[in-house]
Design a protein around this nucleic acid. Structure first.
Lengths: 100, 100
DNA sequence: ACAACATTTGGCTAAAATACAAAATGTTGT
DNA sequence: ACAACATTTTGTATTTTAGCCAAATGTTGT
């Protein structure tokens, strides 16, 4: 029982971290863009009016939450969704929004 | 086109606010509890080792995001999920977690 | 009108998140 | 080995969030 409670608490923490990572407009848009397929950091940068270092930080938040992975190819680094099912959450969210 | 961009930005903001609201362990657990049905604040309070005022603040975050609604009945206030489909998001999340 | 109760709000402090600029890192081409 | 490029990391200032306590609000029963 105690073990279960501990596990549960861990899972709650991890889940809330994923939500938290998605809880920023810039990061949400990054994820939406990655839904189209992997993207180079340079492409993502063009989408926003922010410093490159700021973008890089957002990417690392998403990466730490396990939402995205990165892969270097040549001079560039490409990010992609770890799990396409992340997108399903967005579908659900649309419904929540629609219902009000 | 411009109008669409504006609408889109608004929607991104609202969506990210919902995610942000869910991005805290206490709030996540509140929502999970409300999945069982509406709950009195006093019941929720027993679940956590936090000040009543802190709990109240969390509830107002969830309320502002549109995730829950409240209703007073007598001396008590009962909270419930605005839209049960919020739970679907949790399902999706479990899958994301499972895939790693 | 008042006391007891449940919950929210205001005031405050400590901790965490965001953003920029500058420096550091890793890669390619010469 | 070096210059140019793409991205990350570090340092730091600003803003936002989380939490507690105390005070305020709304409800019920007397």
């Amino acid at each position: 029982m105690k073990r279960n409670a501990t596990l549960n608490k861990l899972s709650v923490k991890r889940k809330s971290e994923i939500f938290k990572a998605l809880g920023h407009p810039t990061r949400l848009q990054i994820v939406e863009k990655l839904a189209e397929g992997e993207q180079c950091v340079c492409v993502l940068l063009e989408m926003f009016d922010i410093d490159m270092s700021t973008l890089s930080r957002h990417l690392s938040v998403l990466k730490n939450a396990g939402i995205v992975t990165d892969e270097r190819r040549g001079k560039n680094i490409f990010y992609s969704l770890t799990c396409p099912c992340t997108l399903d959450m967005f579908q659900c969210l649309e419904e929540v929004l629609g219902d009000r």
